[in-house]
């Protein structure tokens, strides 16, 4: 079962007076399996926030369909099982942390002892148990983001959509968010994570989708997307043609940098020793060899830049 499914989703903003229509999302087709931590990536203006707003029912699509936990996006049945931390938010800061969570619990149709128990749990989880009686206006930006995270998971939702959850957080705060994501994953929840901090996404996510100009460019299991390529930076006393020929037999791609250095893309890390042997057997004077496993950032940049060309 898909936790999120979109079919040819399209959103066009038409200005009321003058100006050209802006296509924010264009034929976006996406499947997010239930129980995964899913990274939703893309450059600024790619259509991520609009997609999320459609999923939570705040924005109506121009065309296409979006389903959340098997229900039409925006339907009450979908909202009951959905938790959301917005990117731009302003909480009712005249409330205390506990009052704020109680209000959100009631809006999520929770009540009584179960609500109080859950408030205690989530405040502990986000590290704000000591500040339960403090007004939100006294919180730092990072603490406000954490109380936002607490309201998102308060009603034990099956799907949690986090829009830039670590944007205002220090490294300790980010670690706590990772722990919360891990906590949700262990309980079989689906986490849909939109973040520009690719290292965070790489650490937390099982699957990713990269979108650009409103379309999905790459989608898949993170390990599958990254494992097949390793980049090795090689430094020789001098690059000679016979060495490059030997390297080309092992590597998929070779990119010269200067007269001493080049990078070689190999299929996997297992090919790196063979690459070193090939250089030595071809008579190359090897000065250094640095393996660099492809990161999500590399994949992201290659994908987005490749799309732009």
């Amino acid at each position: 079962m898909w936790a999120i499914e979109t079919r040819n989703l399209r959103k066009v903003y038409r200005p009321l007076i003058g100006g050209n229509p802006i296509t924010a999302v264009d034929s976006l087709t996406l499947q997010v399996p239930a129980g995964t931590v899913f990274g939703f990536l893309g450059p600024n203006g790619a259509g991520k926030t609009t997609t999320i707003q459609i999923l939570i029912g705040n924005v109506y699509p121009t065309a296409g369909q979006a389903f959340v936990l098997g229900h039409r996006a925006g339907a009450l049945a979908a909202k009951r099982k959905l938790g959301f931390l917005p990117e731009k938010f302003q909480f009712h800061d005249f409330l205390t942390a506990e009052e704020f969570l109680r209000m959100h619990g009631r809006l999520a149709k929770m009540d009584g002892a179960s609500l109080q128990r859950r408030i205690d749990e989530v405040l502990e989880l986000v590290g704000l148990a000591e500040r339960r009686k403090s007004k939100i206006r006294e919180f730092s930006k990072g603490m406000q983001q954490r109380i936002g995270l607490a309201q998102a998971i308060l009603h034990d939702p099956d799907l949690v959509i986090l829009d830039e959850p670590t944007s205002a957080l220090d490294p300790l705060g980010r670690r706590r968010v990772r722990e919360v994501v891990q906590y949700l994953k262990e309980r079989g929840k689906t986490v849909f994570l939109n973040s520009h901090l690719l290292s965070e996404v790489e650490r937390s996510c099982d699957q990713v989708a990269i979108i650009n100009k409103g379309r999905v460019i790459v989608q898949g299991v993170l390990d599958d997307l990254l494992v097949n390529r390793s980049v090795v930076r090689v430094e020789l006393k001098r690059i000679e043609p016979r060495v490059l020929e030997a390297v080309a037999r092992v590597a998929q791609k070779v990119h010269p940098i200067d007269e001493r250095c080049f990078t070689a893309e190999v299929a996997s890390e297992d090919d790196i020793p063979e690459l070193a042997r090939a250089i030595l057997e071809a008579g190359g004077d090897l000065l250094g060899l640095q393996a660099h496993r492809e990161t999500l950032e590399d994949l992201f940049i290659q994908t987005v830049e490749g799309e732009g060309k």
Binding site: I56, G57, N58, L76, K79, R80, L82, F84, L85, P86, K88, F89, Q90, F91, H92, H104, L107, A108, K109, G148, Q151, A152
Partner: peptide, 14 residues
């Protein structure tokens, strides 16, 4: 515009 409704509208209410 201020962002007050951002966390309230996704709640299960019409």
């Amino acid at each position: 515009e201020r962002g007050y409704l951002a966390a309230i509208l996704p709640r299960p209410l019409y």
